[in-house]
């Protein structure tokens, strides 16, 4: 028995994020095939799948870094309407700076490694139009504090920090403007277990305290299980199964999901 996207609704909630029939090819390789997803306000959607399944490509499209060949993407926000893939570069940049935060697996993609940590966060505020110096510094510290970054290291550049601390700076940058949507691409991969737990705890706390809607991509099923309300399983660019997180882990229906869940240590 599968649950259709248009299943009867008890509550007329409006999804914050709606992606429909998104496809993307690079030459002969179809990276993402006809992917549709809805994420409701405050919800955490986890996307799992092996390397090359298209999960990170799909996430980059949600961050408007990539444009698909076909498909639509809308966010239920007062300042935007219509298909976001049709926005020009400037409008995309402003929307991402103000309403969408992202944390990459590789901090080099998200941070200026030789600038101070607080400067990295302040840069996000500058892009969004904040110009008052004292305000910049205060808001950057506030975001770093919410990400549980040690404030005595505000001026340290990320290159001098550990992997876990670098992820906190990325997180602070992503939440500095109270985004409506937070995208996380393998945020804990490569971190040792105790640091991983700290980052996961910070994410969970932020999600609960600020009701931030999140999409998290990871090949680590433990991370997805800890954070996600719903899970989408991708393979070779397509969604093979989607459902409530506990259902995906306890009673997977698709042969590939069963293989994935049973392979977990």
């Amino acid at each position: 028995m599968t649950i259709a996207l248009d299943a009867p609704r008890l509550v007329q909630a409006q999804p914050l994020l709606t992606a429909q029939n998104v496809s993307k090819s690079y030459g002969d390789v179809q990276a993402v095939r006809d992917v549709s997803a809805e994420v409701f306000p405050g919800e955490v959607l986890g996307i799992v799948g092996e390397s090359g399944s298209g999960k990170s490509t799909f996430l980059r499209m949600l961050n408007l870094e990539e444009t698909p060949d076909t498909g639509t993407y809308t966010l239920d926000l007062p300042e935007v309407e219509g298909n976001l893939f049709e926005l020009d570069r400037f409008a995309r940049r402003m929307l991402c700076a103000k309403r969408i935060g992202i944390v990459y697996q590789n901090p080099h993609l998200g941070l200026l490694m030789n600038h101070s940590s607080s400067g990295n966060v302040a840069e996000r505020l500058l892009v969004a139009g904040e110009r008052r110096f004292t305000e910049l510094r205060e808001r950057a510290s506030e975001a770093l504090q919410a990400s549980e970054f040690p404030l005595e290291r505000l001026d340290a550049p990320p290159i001098e920090l550990s992997g876990g601390m670098q992820q906190r700076v990325q997180l602070a940058k992503a939440i500095a403007l109270e985004p409506a949507l937070l995208l996380l691409d393998e945020p804990t991969t490569g971190l040792d277990v105790s640091v991983q737990a700290l980052v996961l705890d910070t994410l969970k706390r932020l999600q609960q305290d600020r009701n931030i809607t999140m999409v998290i991509v990871s090949h680590d099923l433990g991370v997805i299980r800890t954070l996600a309300d719903r899970v989408m399983v991708m393979r070779r660019g397509a969604v093979v199964e989607a459902g409530l997180a506990d259902q995906i882990f306890q009673d997977p229906q698709h042969a590939y999901t069963q293989q994935l869940v049973h392979a977990k240590l």
Binding site: M1, P8, L10, V11, D246
Partner: peptide
């Protein structure tokens, strides 16, 4: 709904209305 049923109906009388738990949207189950 941690397990997926093969067939049948589970009608639940919620304060929001009446719904078949086996076919309800995930957002409602949450």
């Amino acid at each position: 709904r941690s397990y997926v049923a093969q067939s049948g109906q589970v009608i639940f009388h919620s304060r929001h209305g009446t719904i078949d738990l086996l076919r309800a949207a995930e957002v409602d189950i949450s």
